[in-house]
Computed example of a mutant assay.
Amino acid sequence: MNFCKHVLILGCGRSGTSIFGELFQHLPEYTYYSEPPFAEVVELNTTQPIALKVPRESEGFLPDEGLSFPLAMLTRKLPSLQVFWQVRHPLDTICSLKVGISRNWGHHPRPPDWQQWLNRPLIEQCAYHWNYINTLGFAQVTDCSVITRFEDMIADPRAFAQSIGQQIQLDISQNEMFLQQWAKRVQNKNNAQFDEATTSRPYSTQDHTVKVGRWQENLSKEEIGQVLPIIQETAQRFNYDLTHLS
């Protein structure tokens, strides 16, 4: 069997990076690390495939703008690295970001000027965070990443997983039991099968019935009008057309 690629999952918080990352907990070929400090990443044994979700800032490692770590240092350590950039509809993400952003801007990496936004409405803070990550952060990996979508993962988790397997040179169907365990967790509505990703649970709310399109339950027309000038251009780059809401 060919050596599977190492995996790096990036994207704005509350975009599905956690449940995506936990796919690798179900694959025996991989060791999975969720948000490890970058200082620990550089010390990892990489003789076997590893999967990383959004490494955290560490003192002594100057991060690239929009990221929480220096990408070049990571790619030197992991020359066989597949980067995935996870995106989710910006309005849905904004709704989901509110809990963490309200806690002293608890999502990382923080924009360098985040404190200047603290006197703005929370909804605008969340929009600014989404836009910062998906502009300056994404710019760092545009040429070396595959864009993955929350909506595709929710719509057909098995097909999503199979596509990931092709990218990392692993036949995920050979791990059918593990694949089924993960796919059952990926639900658009909370139900008996739904099991939220571990790191997402502190930010979860019960103010919506669906995950795809939750903004229609959670955002007023006024709030949408507040955030559109912040996110609309970036949303269009990821093929989320918000022009009908203007």
Rank of each mutant, 00 (worst) to 15 (best):
M1N: 15
F3S: 10
K5M: 10
H6S: 11
H6V: 06
I9K: 07
C12S: 13
G16Y: 06
T17Y: 05
S18G: 09
F20D: 03
G21M: 03
L23R: 00
L27H: 09
E29L: 12
E29G: 11
Y30F: 15
T31D: 10
T31L: 13
Y32T: 12
S34L: 14
S34R: 12
E35D: 11
E35R: 05
P36S: 12
P37S: 06
F38H: 00
F38N: 00
F38W: 07
A39S: 15
A39R: 15
E40Q: 15
V41K: 00
T46Q: 08
T46Y: 07
I50C: 05
I50P: 11
K53Q: 15
P55M: 02
R56L: 14
R56H: 14
E59W: 13
G60I: 14
G60R: 10
E65K: 12
E65Y: 15
E65Q: 12
L67N: 01
L67G: 08
S68T: 10
S68L: 11
S68P: 11
F69C: 01
L71P: 08
L71W: 07
A72G: 00
M73I: 02
L74A: 02
T75Y: 04
K77Q: 13
P79S: 07
Q82T: 04
R88M: 13
H89Y: 03
L91S: 11
C95R: 01
V99C: 05
S102P: 08
R103Q: 10
N104S: 08
G106T: 07
G106N: 06
G106C: 05
P112R: 06
R120L: 04
R120V: 00
P121I: 00
L122A: 04
E124S: 03
E124W: 00
E124V: 00
Y128N: 06
Y128F: 04
H129K: 00
W130Q: 01
N131C: 02
N131M: 05
N134I: 03
N134F: 05
T135R: 11
T135A: 12
G137H: 02
G137A: 03
D143I: 06
I147N: 12
T148L: 11
R149D: 14
R149N: 15
E151D: 04
M153R: 03
M153K: 03
M153A: 09
I154H: 12
D156I: 00
P157L: 13
P157F: 12
P157V: 14
A159F: 14
F160M: 10
F160W: 08
F160R: 01
A161N: 02
A161T: 03
I164S: 01
I164C: 05
I168M: 08
I168S: 03
Q169K: 09
L170S: 06
M177H: 03
F178D: 10
L179W: 01
Q180W: 04
K184G: 04
R185Y: 10
R185I: 04
Q187M: 02
N188R: 04
N188P: 13
A197L: 08
T198H: 09
R201T: 05
T205H: 11
D207V: 06
H208Q: 09
T209D: 13
G213Y: 15
W215T: 07
Q216A: 14
Q216P: 02
E217N: 11
S220P: 09
I224Q: 13
G225D: 08
G225Y: 03
Q226Y: 07
L228N: 01
I231P: 00
I231C: 01
T234E: 01
A235S: 14
A235N: 03
F238Y: 10
S246D: 13
